[in-house]
Amino acid sequence: MLLIPCPHCGPRNQEEFAYERTLDSVVRLNDAPELAIATLYARANPRGQEHEIWSHTCGQWLRLTRDRISHAIHSVEPL
C-alpha cells in the first residue's frame, strides 16, 4: 500500500490511484505507424527506476518515477 503524493490532493493511499502504463508505452496520436506499432510491443522493463503514468481519484494524471525493486517513489509530476 504505497503512499503516493497527488500533486493536487497531497499524499494519499495507493487505493485511491490507478496505475495506467509506463511512459515508454505511450503511443502518440501523430506517431508514424512504424513507431506506433513498435511501441505496442517493446518495453524497457528496467531493473530499477522507471517512469510510470498513474491517475488519482480526483482526476489528476501524474508521472511517477518509481524503483521497481524497492517501490520507493523518486519523484512525482503532474501530467
Partner: peptide, 16 residues
C-alpha cells in the same frame, strides 16, 4: 484552492 470549500463552492479536482 485544493482540498478547500468556500460557501457552497467545493474544489473537486485540479481544474474543477
Amino acid at each position: 484552492g485544493p482540498g478547500q470549500a468556500e460557501g457552497a463552492v467545493l474544489r473537486i479536482g485540479p481544474r474543477r
